[in-house]
Design a binder for these strands. Sequence first.
RNA 1: GAGGGUGUAGCUCAGCAGGUUAGAGCGCAAGAUUGUGGCUCUUGAGGCCGUGGGUUCGAACCCCAUCAUCCUCCCCA
Length: 418
Amino acid sequence: MLPQDYTAAGNQTHGSAAWLFVERRIREVFERFDFREIRTPMFEPTEMIARGVGETSDIVTKEMFAWTKGDTNYVLRPELTAPIMRAYLQHRLDQQGPVQRLSYLGPCFRAERPARGRFRQFHQFGAEIIGSADPRADAEVVAVLMAIYGAFGIENLRLRINTLGTPEERTAYKAALRTFLTPRQEALSDISRERLDKNPLRILDTKLEYEQALLENAPILTDFLGQETRAFFDRVCSYVHDLGIPFVTDPKLVRGLDYYAHTTFELESDALNGALAGAGRYDLLAKDFGNPNPVPAVGFAAGMERLFVVLSDAGYVFPEVSAPDVFLVAIGNEAENWAFRKAQSLRKNDIRVAFDLKGRSMKAQMREADRSRAPLVVIVGDQELVSESVNLKNMAEGTQETIPELDLMHRIKRFSSK
RNA sequence: GAGGGUGUAGCUCAGCAGGUUAGAGCGCAAGAUUGUGGCUCUUGAGGCCGUGGGUUCGAACCCCAUCAUCCUCCCCA
């Protein structure tokens, strides 16, 4: 048994074929929607992440794995939108075409308490459309997210959409909300009272019934939105509607990250408390990074582990791991050496080969062959070596024939191509 | 960060009110079948009973702490 400090809390080790299968399927959908995968570093300067995600956000204030090396502070990336925007600006991706459609899939890190569907190292997949202020871009992001869940046959989900408007509109609303809530702050929870000053929008998110009741008469964000914002949001909604994707609009949907403006949306499931995916438009992030011009952008981020929760709740059956084409069973030292070399030559011809590495009995090798689920087994002993023949066994049918060794490659290929 | 549940074999779990060598099923291994898998039967390997301390003649069991894990809250993917 290993010492208990050999593992860190909230992490998992993945060895399963299911993980690869899910990744592959996600990437297929991204390709279908013309997204190109981008990979950014696992750790980033704290400065960039803090600016991008927001100095006051929960993520930055209390959930980062951080360290210092030399004069620079680093963090393990807590999310990927900010790093991708950084990469876009730094590598001048706009020069490769006016609209960049980027996807990603990889680990992120947050120092939170682990829970169902939540880990300290977790994995996000997502997509960003950078360079388009067209409401169809927002709808495209919704579409690709829903298509991924659709690709797994998952449909019982709730999609909520809202607009946060422009910073000016939001500021005006924040002030109004604060004015409304301040005289009533005695009735608020401790957490909400703290937010009253810092970020009153987040109070809207409350799940406490008495707070929700209190908010019934509160000013509503929609009333503070200008003509343009409303028109834009209406177009986003109608595009999503055109795609046949069910959703509800929810003026109380706010998101924890500072960079959102205009469209925000969130995907939820009954299987889980937290969100499956969160998303939105973040036209101002580029300016936050010090870029002279704003860069319109919209994207989503979804949790792999949460997808797995939903899949396993739905009783999803993952395909079996891939089996070798053939298993080589060898009897005796000579035959073992033959099999060892034969495996290599078959593999050079794109045949997937497995064989025993323990010098075990033939019976044990057969059991191993069965377990490997190889459809064909080649059995070779001294007799076959002398006659330069091999026994080729069809495991499903239990039939076996002796063939010249020279025909082996051809026979395996012919069988596998059927 | 707050509250609660659970930690016994690779996995799923038993273990009566503290009592001697800690069990089952599945899985794994060997044999029955000396060159043939699955099915069956037999046998076997594998446990610091999460960790540390305490109470006791005696602790898997009781107490404390700690770690891990799960759930609720918080927040988010």
